[in-house]
Amino acid sequence: MALTSQIKPYDDRWPVMFEVEKALLQVVFAPHSVEIQHVGSTAVPGLAAKPEIDLLIVSDHQDEDRVDQDMASLGYERGKDLSNGHMFYRRDVGGIRTHKVHVFRPGHWQIFRMLRFRDMLRQDDELRLQYQVLKLELESKNESGIKEYLSQKAPFIDAVVGLLPKG
């Protein structure tokens, strides 16, 4: 089964695509947005990735119905909450996933995990290569879709950020 999109070589346009989307999302989450960060593999120069721009938003907003409506006006569909305090939105164009938005309440543990992993990949060429090899291998062996792919990447990510012992 295919992933939400196919892994591609790094594209220099990804940071620009993030900045464009960030400007739109700042309006949606104002004045409650604390920060908007580019995360995921498209945020790591030189790393092959599914060409899906991942955004991390820290927000203490209260009006979820308004946010859902504003996100829908930008073409986003709300997925199920990934955990308490972690909302998820996705945008597909022509059946292809283009953007994912993770909205966290301040202090959520996943904020640390996502930012630390991104920063470690940006700073360590060997780690970046190991992760790229893993992603390409998981993509080539994937049988049941994105949930399988994500669950198989998670132990590597957790070990790298120090949430589990390496092994």
Rank of each mutant, 00 (worst) to 15 (best):
A30G: 05
K50H: 10
D70G: 15
L56W: 07
D65L: 06
D81L: 03
V39R: 05
I36M: 05
S73N: 02
S59I: 08
D65Q: 12
Q69H: 14
H32Q: 12
E35G: 12
Q69Y: 08
Y76C: 14
D65Y: 05
D60N: 14
A43P: 02
H86T: 12
R90Y: 10
E52Q: 13
Q62W: 04
I53S: 04
T42N: 00
V34T: 12
V93C: 04
I57D: 01
S59K: 08
D81A: 15
A72V: 09
Q37E: 15
E52H: 10
S83F: 06
Y89R: 10
L56A: 00
R91V: 00
G40A: 06
G46H: 05
N84L: 11
A30M: 04
P31D: 04
Q69L: 12
V34W: 06
S59R: 03
Y76A: 08
G46Q: 11
Y89A: 09
Q37R: 15
N84W: 02
D81C: 13
G75N: 01
P51L: 10
Q37V: 15
S59N: 10
V67Y: 01
G40V: 11
S41E: 08
L82Q: 14
M71Q: 14
L82G: 05
K80D: 15
D60A: 08
V39T: 14
D70E: 15
K80G: 15
Q37P: 05
E64I: 02
H61T: 13
D70T: 07
D81N: 13
M71R: 05
V93W: 09
A30S: 13
D68K: 00
S73H: 13
K80T: 09
D81K: 13
G79L: 06
D54T: 04
V67W: 02
A43E: 09
K50S: 12
A43L: 11
D68C: 03
Q69D: 12
N84Q: 10
R66F: 03
G40Y: 10
T42M: 02
V67K: 01
F88Q: 09
V39P: 11
R66C: 04
E52K: 06
D92W: 00
R78M: 08
A30H: 08
A43M: 07
S41Q: 07
N84D: 07
K80S: 13
Y89D: 15
E77D: 12
F88I: 07
A30E: 14
S59G: 00
V93T: 09
A30Y: 04
G85H: 03
R66L: 03
V34A: 14
D92S: 13
I36T: 06
V39W: 10
Q69P: 00
A49G: 04
A48W: 02
T42F: 03
T42V: 05
D54W: 01
D81Q: 12
I53Y: 06
D54G: 01
K50A: 11
K50D: 11
T42H: 02
I36R: 00
V93D: 03
P31I: 05
P31G: 06
R90G: 06
H86D: 02
V34K: 08
E77K: 10
G75E: 01
V93K: 10
D65N: 00
G46S: 00
L82K: 14
L82C: 09
A30P: 09
I53V: 15
E35L: 15
V39G: 07
Y89F: 15
D60Q: 10
R78D: 01
I36G: 07
H61S: 07
R66Q: 06
G85F: 04
S83R: 11
H38L: 13
D70H: 12
H38K: 14
A72H: 12
V44P: 02
I36F: 02
P51C: 06
